[in-house]
Design a protein around this nucleic acid. Structure first.
Length: 646
RNA sequence: GCGCCGGUAGCUCAGCUGGAUAGAGCACGGGAUUUCUAAUCCCGCGGUCGGGGGUUCGAGUCCCCCCCGGCGCACCA
């Protein structure tokens, strides 16, 4: 009967310093051996056995390969840290696989025998490269990840790119932690905003089609939307100019509650308010509202127009998704799901989950969850956004047999999702405790936020095309003998561009808002996806030219650059696990940057193919193979394409 | 008014359950190397971690107050 085995840990300062969850591989065996030695020593000297002996990668690796923080141990066992450190140093010093162990002010710095380190690495990475870093923490779980969810009235922009990359990468990360993951899209293909682009086309576009204009079809739809907004703004201005008495009335009310402001400021505020509240009083607004009603009663002319324009939007998205490396396992459309939820609410009303108010509306009191009250059916019996989301969530859970769901949606909807989850818990669904909103922050441009209503956005297709063009120029620069044909240049450029954009948007903590500078994104030096790809291409060409590395002897590798590379590779399983735990592909991205830094130093310090020593060359090639595996696994989690040659 | 999320080098970002002198990249200054693909490597410059209290052997990290920025608190989506 085995005792409850404490987990061996590999922790580090920068991107990774967490529990290594794997079992039965080379690295954990090495770490566990050291941890076990430590526990044995502590038991013998002090009669204590802490559950958790944390092994860190020290920030400054000149201190050692691994470090044990005795202050942490002291919290559990109540013995002075210097004393613990001294005990551990004495016990571990020169005990395989530890080379030296030194106690310094409450820390024990360990230098490992390089051979033991590298052998453990080779065992872990090269025995089953495709599984390097794969975890089991989510084994048996079936998760559905919803992301993208675009409106069909305009093309994808920079914000969608962050969403799409986060969604697809998080899905990959969760899958790698052992879950069965389904990727879902939900198209917002109906509603007043869709009618705006439809009306824009009908009234102002002279029957333009993608064929007649040669335009990408979703972009044409977007132009219709922008055109509508422009014409609508003109009508709003005209209305406001000819009805000054409405402004005067509004102003009187406004001034009762606010400090006196300048006339021009008030005028602007009023117009802003009016374009929402006075929507139906503007001719175009009224027409738009009528169009929505016609859509809802299945008016054939409106439905035909809707089918045509949605077809354009979908066709455009399909191409964009392909270019961005995005795909889905299940797809929902709001036009199919928008009536869902009502029956569930009515059933819940019977069971007392919801309440019927005096005015006929149905609501729920969530004050126990500090979320206030929420109306889930209007007094006229129609649905609100929440009603639909209750319906689609239940539908997704039952159709796909999932026990957890994740939504990749901007953080401005945090409250909405908190309420949604609370309602579903009240409704008693077993899976309601496993719902998570990955509330990512907004993407800003250096000059501020994007304005989609005015068409001032960074378009996804344009950005990818521009980045690809710059990458192509870079590829050509490096192909001085012009050995590459156009198709090959284009293929490489496409990969570099997509990798760069994915990396740029994924390396930032998802929860934080970020500034994205399109000009910076097309540079390829520094902390970029292109640099990651380049490091890989160099490795690949060395490995392809170097022949077999299977005989590489770990005992020959002891250069600090080699040892550092191995230590960083050690940390990958922990990085992958942390990324899943925190829903943060950024953890993987930052780990990749460390790996690439170590790799470039290794290239600089150590000759591989140039080495005259055949045995050393084989050993280094084996290390290169391990590093290549690390790059492959990490970039795959981020959805970055790799190039064998650059 | 209430709530949530941010504020770390000139800029963009790391910094995990509190732990050793707060780290990268860009920019700037210098150097290496004409390369196993330089989309590289090394050195330097640069920080009162928004401010002030507190807890602790130890605080960028935890607690309180304040300032600044963003977002919510719809019978909109």
């Amino acid at each position: 009967m085995s005792h409850r085995r404490p987990q061996a840990c590999l922790e580090r300062s920068a991107s990774v310093r967490t529990i290594a969850p794997l079992a039965g591989n080379g690295v954990e065996m090495l770490l566990e051996r050291i941890a076990e030695m430590a526990r044995t020593a502590l038991a013998a000297a002090h009669g204590v056995s802490p559950a958790h002996v944390a092994l860190d990668l020290p920030e400054d690796r000149s201190r050692g390969d691994l470090t044990i923080n005795a202050f942490l141990l002291a919290k559990e066992v109540r013995i002075a840290p210097p004393k613990l450190a001294a005990t551990l140093a004495a016990a571990l010093n020169a005990q395989h696989p530890v080379d030296t162990a030194t106690a310094i002010s409450g820390y024990v710095n360990l230098k490992l025998q390089p051979q033991a380190l590298l052998e453990a690495l080779f065992t872990e990475v090269l025995t089953d490269p495709a599984a390097f870093g794969r975890g089991q923490t989510l084994a048996g779980r079936r998760l559905l990840v919803e992301f993208s969810a675009p409106n069909t009235n305009k093309p994808l922009h920079l914000g969608h790119m962050r969403n799409n990359f986060l969604g697809s990468s998080t899905a990959a990360v969760l899958d790698y932690a052992g879950a069965h993951v389904l990727r879902a899209n939900l198209f917002n293909d109906r509603g007043i905003h869709i009618c705006k682009s439809m009306l824009g086309w009908k009234r102002f576009m002279d029957g333009a089609t993608p064929e007649s204009t040669g335009q990408k079809s979703d972009h044409l739809v977007g132009d219709c939307y922008v055109r509508f907004e422009r014409e609508f703004a003109l009508e709003v201005a005209a209305y406001c100019d000819t009805n000054p008495e409405e402004f005067a009335a509004w102003k009187t009310q406004r001034k009762a509650t606010a400090a006196v402001e300048e006339e021009a400021t008030l005028q602007r505020e009023w117009r802003g308010t009016f374009r929402e509240e006075g929507f139906a009083r503007i001719p175009l607004g009224a027409e738009c509202t009528e169009m929505l009603r016609a859509w809802e009663r299945n008016d054939s002319a409106v439905r035909t127009l809707w089918e045509m324009m949605n077809g354009w939007a979908y066709a455009g998205f399909e191409r964009s998704y392909a270019d961005l490396g995005i795909s889905f396992d299940v797809v929902y459309r709001e036009s199919d799901t928008w009536t869902l939820g009502r029956d569930l609410i009515l059933a819940g009303l019977e069971q007392g989950v919801f309440e019927r108010r005096a005015d006929g509306a149905v609501d729920i009191d969530l004050s126990a969850e500090k979320l206030g009250r929420k109306v889930v059916l209007r007094s006229d019996g129609t649905s609100v956004y929440m009603t639909q989301d209750i319906g689609t969530t239940v539908l997704k859970a039952s159709q796909n047999n999932v026990d957890g769901q994740l939504w990749v949606v901007g953080d401005e909807q945090k409250h909405h999702f908190a309420v949604l989850f609370a309602i579903l818990r009240r409704m008693g669904y077993a899976w309601a405790s496993d719902l998570h909103h990955l509330a990512y922050g907004m993407v800003y441009l250096p000059e501020g936020r994007m304005k989609s209503r005015e068409g001032k956005v960074v378009d996804a297709d344009d950005l990818l095309a521009e980045t690809t063009a710059l990458a192509a120029a870079e590829v050509r620069t490096r192909d001085s003998e012009q050995r590459l044909d156009d198709a090959e240049v284009q293929r490489r450029a496409a990969a570099v561009a997509l990798a760069s954009l994915r990396f740029m948007l994924l390396k930032v903590n998802p929860l934080a808002s970020m500034v994205f500078d399109p000009k910076e994104s097309v540079k390829f030096d520094g902390d970029t996806g292109a640099r990651v790809l380049y490091a890989y291409a160099r490795l690949r060409s060395m490995l392809d030219a170097g022949g077999s590395s299977a005989t590489g002897d770990a005992a020959l590798l002891n250069d600090p650059a080699e040892v550092n590379l191995a230590l960083t590779l050690f940390a990958f399983p922990a990085a992958a696990a942390r990324a899943a735990r925190e829903y943060s592909p950024a953890v993987v991205a930052n780990w990749l940057l460390e790996l690439v830094r170590d790799l470039n130093r290794f290239y600089d310090r150590c000759d591989v193919l140039r080495s005259s020593d055949a045995a050393l060359r084989a050993a280094r090639l084996r290390l290169c193979a391990a590093a290549a595996t690390g790059l492959e696994r990490g970039t795959t989690l981020l959805g970055m394409p790799l190039l064998q040659r650059m």
